[in-house]
């Protein structure tokens, strides 16, 4: 078992609880022991980074410090945006001793342990797409997806900026496809899989966001997808919940079920629905998945 500090972020704590429960259920089957962080806050979601960048850096340094205090060298994330925010702050702190010293002095002033820079931030996707996690995933996925056509949707902030993410080629990613295939599914291809779902501006500029959101939904359906899978709960929220608005504005019926990464693997691994919690989705994935039972 690899012991990792687990940062679930805002959505998995509240509106996407199904992401948390399915991650917790999956973790031991792919060799991860999750040490949940209690004294942590929101990473700022790109919003605090934009508006008050110095506060953003302190908030994320605090999360990294508490992760380091668990004794693990890995901070596991389940959200693209958390991953970017934490990795970016981590590089800033690791790469500049003067800056880290100032932030640490402030952390200590409010009672937070200082951060020495020894933690690596990794998304669940990366843990199970290669190495031991991938080998265990292949064993765990015994039920298989039996040829289910799955559209991988990466979202932006697990791929770009590549200098901060650095896991795979941002234009030709492979990790989701590899996992889908290891689970017995068929990964379908479509151009918008690496593009934006519109979520960051879905409240402030809904129309612009909708023009982005429709691309992966339409293209995936056209390519024959039964379901879509994403490693990001923010992408999940826009793709799942705002799909009804797309239907209203276009007059088309999409009905594309969107799965969190841990749920898709969870289905293949035979995890109970009480953990996967599909009833919390707006577009119910169960009809598409029930066909697998036949």
């Amino acid at each position: 078992m690899k012991r990792v500090a687990y940062y679930k972020g805002c959505l998995a704590s509240l509106s996407a609880k199904e992401l948390d429960t399915s991650t917790q259920a999956l973790a031991p089957r792919v060799g991860l022991e999750l040490v949940e962080l209690e004294s942590v806050t929101c990473c700022g979601a790109g919003d605090i980074h934009e508006a008050e960048p110095d506060y953003y850096l302190h908030l994320n340094a605090r999360i990294l410090a508490y992760a380091e205090a668990t004794g693990s060298d890995t901070l596991l994330t389940v959200c693209n945006v958390c991953t970017l925010n934490l990795r970016q702050a981590n590089f800033m702190l690791k790469g500049d001793d003067t800056l880290r010293a100032r932030i640490n002095a402030n952390l200590e002033a409010v009672g937070v342990p200082p951060y020495s820079g020894e933690v690596e931030v990794r998304h669940l996707l990366w843990e199970i797409a290669e190495g031991d996690g991938y080998e265990l995933l292949k064993q765990a996925a015994h039920k298989g997806l039996k040829g289910l056509k799955v559209a991988p949707f990466y979202g932006c902030q697990i791929l770009r900026p590549s200098k901060i993410m650095g896991f795979e080629d941002p234009d030709r990613p492979w990790s989701l496809e590899r996992i889908i295939e290891a689970c017995g599914g068929e990964a379908i291809d479509y151009p918008a899989k690496i593009k934006c779902c519109g979520f960051p501006i879905i409240q402030a500029r809904e129309e612009t966001a909708m023009g982005e959101l429709i691309q992966p939904v339409e293209q995936a359906i056209e390519a024959g997808a039964d379901v879509m899978v994403t490693p990001c709960p923010l992408c999940h929220l826009s793709l799942d919940a705002w799909q009804q608005k797309l239907e209203a504005s276009t007059g088309k019926k999409f009905g594309l079920p969107i799965l969190h990464l841990a749920q898709l693997v969870g289905v293949a691994a035979g995890i109970e629905e009480s953990e996967l919690k599909f009833k919390r989705h707006i577009v119910d994935p169960r009809p598409a998945l029930e066909r697998l039972e036949v």
């Binding site: 008050e52 970016q88 590089f91 790469g95 409010v110 200098k163």
Partner: peptide, 27 residues
């Protein structure tokens, strides 16, 4: 702790774009 950090950050006055620029050397 987060509330106090926010207060401290405002007192130190690294506001606006300066907060972004301070991280550029490392990035």
């Amino acid at each position: 702790e987060a509330r106090n950090l926010h207060k401290l950050v405002h007192e130190q006055g690294v506001l606006g774009a300066a907060g972004h620029i301070q991280g550029e050397r490392a990035l």
